[in-house]
Amino acid sequence: MLNNILKTSRQVLYPVARTFSRSGNHGNVVTEAAATVGAPPATRSPLILPQDYTDCLPVSRNTARQAWIENTDAVAERKVGLIELHPDVFAAQPRVDIIQENVEWQSKYRYVSMAHTKTRAEVRGGGRKPWPQKGGGRARHGSLRSPMLKGGGVVHGPRSPTTHFYMLPFYKRVLGLTSTLSVKLAQDDLHIIDNVDIPTGDAEFLKDLIAERNWGPSVLIVDEDHMFPANICQASDDLGYVNLMPTFGLNVYSMLKHDTLVLTVAAVKHLEQRLLYQLNRNDAASKGGKFKLDQV
């Protein structure tokens, strides 16, 4: 039944739906309100977005995923459409070990250790020979700051700053993204909205929306563009557990830190396009080399 809907609406609705989703991304609040007032929401045509497999054929088409497209103009949930997700991006076999490596890399690569010990040359004092070389019966020592003695220097201790930077291989980062997106979808922690325009900048609206739709204790809202409308920025600024992010900043750590991942339709399309490009590029060997600090 779902396949029939997809087949019949593939040719007819795809261009119109794409235009609608793109143009509605940066819509003005006033125009949105006018549109809402002008036409009742129930009569708007559903947004059916089938997947176009001509460019990137998936490994297995049987594992294609579908997800509802939800509204953002009211607290009550209303499904405004249906989108088919590419299986190579959203139905990949989850590699939990690679997800863990990505989280560890994102924690470590920016960490600089400031632990600092002093050598015997830097510890204050200890210039005088503590006791004579001969005739005393004690072991010979030249300084009280020797590493062997209490209060002396430290040999091979930490010397700050020590960077823990390293770069994870390129395709581990790519697979980390596809695995995390697949895990989020499989755990039903991924929601797709048509755009990020909300009718008011009040934090209560966003809080009620999250509570009504069971979006969990923390939410990450991802859009394709890095310029977000004023209302959602104002509302999310008052809530510490709601964060906004453009697609180029999407990463494994942030996806796992937030309980729910909310993507716009434009963000889903952009993510699929970029990740499928990386998975199918014919110069993949060039990305496998050693990371250079001045590479772009």
């Binding site: 310029m227 977000f228 004023a230 920025c233 906004l244 453009p246 900043g249």
Partner: peptide, 12 residues
Amino acid sequence: PTYPQTVDRSGL
């Protein structure tokens, strides 16, 4: 606080 029409959230 007053917000402009669009706000940059890239963090760059």
